[in-house]
């Protein structure tokens, strides 16, 4: 069992085209760290300069928003984290 991270298409260029990556961790933050351990170029896409989640990435846990403090949210095997790219055009 693992936690699954579904990636936005913008991020798949860093995961050899994979739409979903299995990771390990006890929190959303640990899972994202494990994702970046597997695919280091994703770090600058997912996190800002201060180590916080990037303003242009949204995190949903099992189909629902995970704020506030998304990165501290506990996860369990079988959970799904969805990374969504922020859209602002019109």
């Amino acid at each position: 069992m693992a936690i699954h991270i579904n990636l936005h298409k913008t991020h798949r260029q860093y995961t050899e085209g994979k739409e979903s990556v299995d990771v390990a961790g006890r929190t959303v933050g640990e899972c994202l760290k494990d994702l970046i351990r597997q695919y280091p170029p994703l770090e600058k896409e997912v996190f800002g300069k201060n180590g916080k989640l990037s303003g242009i990435v949204e995190v949903y846990l099992n189909g629902a928003t995970a704020y506030p403090d998304e990165l501290a949210k506990p996860v369990k095997d079988g959970d799904t984290i969805q990374l969504v790219y922020f859209l602002a055009g019109g």
Binding site: L53, G55, E58, T65, Y67, E70, A88
Partner: peptide, 18 residues
Amino acid sequence: PCLRCMYHGDVPKEKFPV
């Protein structure tokens, strides 16, 4: 919930091809 509920940092200005 409102749009700002989802805010967690500034979004850089850019052109959005559509």
